[in-house]
Amino acid sequence: MSLTAHIPSHRKPRQSASKTALRAGVAGGVLSTIAVAGAAGPAQAEPVTQTIEMPTITSGFSTTVAASAQATQQVALDLETQANEDAAAENAAKKAKKAKAEAVRKAEAKKKAEAAAKKKAEAAERASRTAERTTLSASPGSSSASGSSASPSSSPSYSSSNATGSAAAVVAFAKAQVGDAYVPGGTGPNSWDCSGLVQAAFRSVNIDLPRVSQSQSTAGTQVSLSNLQPGDILYWGSAGSAYHVAIYIGGGQFVGAQNSNTGTVQRSLDYDRPTGAVRVL
Rank of each mutant, 00 (worst) to 15 (best):
S148E: 10
E122C: 01
S161H: 02
S151P: 08
S146G: 03
R126T: 11
Y158A: 09
S159P: 06
T134F: 06
P140K: 01
E125T: 11
S128N: 10
A138H: 07
E122V: 09
S128I: 03
T130W: 03
S148W: 09
P140C: 02
S143E: 00
S155T: 00
P140D: 05
S160W: 00
S155K: 01
R133I: 11
R133W: 06
S142H: 12
S160N: 09
S157K: 12
A131K: 09
S142Y: 03
A150P: 09
S151Y: 00
A124L: 12
T135V: 07
S157G: 11
P156E: 00
S157E: 05
A123R: 03
R126I: 10
T135Y: 10
T134I: 08
L136F: 06
S142N: 13
E132F: 04
S160Y: 01
S154Y: 12
L136T: 15
E122M: 10
S139E: 07
A138V: 05
P152M: 05
A150Q: 09
S160M: 01
P140R: 01
S146W: 02
R126E: 12
N162T: 12
S137W: 06
A145I: 02
T130E: 10
S146Y: 04
T130P: 00
S144I: 00
G147L: 05
G147H: 08
L136I: 15
G141T: 03
E132T: 14
S154L: 02
S157T: 14
P152N: 15
A127L: 11
A123M: 02
S153D: 14
E132M: 09
S142F: 02
E132G: 10
